[in-house]
């Protein structure tokens, strides 16, 4: 209206949201949670490297 865009005022944009029924989540938050789940699973399945064996 005044020629001021949301971005000019340093306003965060509204973001991308996903909704399944009552469940609503912002894209960034979904990425963080998915990354954690993936890292957790990888930590359990990837074998741990064996360094110098003592003795």
């Amino acid at each position: 209206m005044l020629g001021i865009k949301q971005a000019d005022a340093g306003m965060p944009d509204t973001g991308i949201y996903f909704q399944w029924g009552d469940f609503l989540i912002q894209f960034g938050n979904l990425v963080v949670i998915a990354t954690m789940v993936v890292l957790f699973i990888l930590a359990l399945v990837i074998p741990f490297p064996h360094g110098k064996t003592r003795k």
């Binding site: 957790f40 990888l42 930590a43 359990l44 990837i46 741990f48 064996h50 003592r54």
Partner: peptide
């Protein structure tokens, strides 16, 4: 200087 063998898993690194 060492840990028991069951600690050699990535899950203990976090």
């Amino acid at each position: 200087e060492g840990q028991p063998s069951y600690v050699s898993s990535w899950i203990y690194v976090f």
